[in-house]
């Protein structure tokens, strides 16, 4: 119920055409990883707090809020198959109708899976709340 906290590195974002799909997200993660590698920049350390209300992102160094994403804007989450330390989600932009895939690098494959399963559990709990509230 309370936020579960994870410490990850932000790889980046890319636009996607659909709110979900294994191949779509795999292709998006591939693009993000390639861009991050090409830039050669140090990745931003971020803290991710996951709850049935959504995902809150903070900059780990400054504790500054990056984004508070409502669960209703998140369509999909995955632990990537090719890049197995990568966790990613697809979210509808706050500003317009576009869909964005955001990817994060975890220290271990198990951690990418744990974040994905935690977000999936948040989806389920949010759905239970929603059904009750209806």
């Amino acid at each position: 119920q309370e936020g579960m906290v994870f410490h990850l590195k932000y790889l980046g974002v890319t636009m996607v055409e659909q709110p979900k799909g294994e191949e779509l997200s795999a292709a998006a993660v591939k693009r993000i990883v390639a861009t991050a590698k090409a830039s050669g920049k140090k990745l931003q350390k971020v803290t991710l707090s996951v709850s049935p209300r959504g995902i809150i992102l903070y900059d780990s160094a400054s504790n500054q809020l990056i984004e508070n994403i409502s669960i209703y804007r998140i369509s999909y989450c995955t632990a990537d198959k090719m890049h197995d330390k990568v966790f990613a989600y697809i979210v509808q932009s706050q500003h317009n109708e576009t869909l964005e895939c955001h990817a994060f690098l975890c220290s271990k494959r198990k951690m990418a899976q744990a974040v994905t399963l935690t977000v999936a559990q948040a989806f389920r709990v949010a759905f239970e709340y929603w059904q009750t509230a209806k």
Partner: peptide
């Protein structure tokens, strides 16, 4: 390969407003 994990959000684009 079956070890990919991915989940759709059942409340995506739903709201409690209506």
């Amino acid at each position: 390969n079956t070890n990919t994990i991915h989940f759709d959000n059942p409340v995506y684009q739903k709201t409690t407003e209506d």
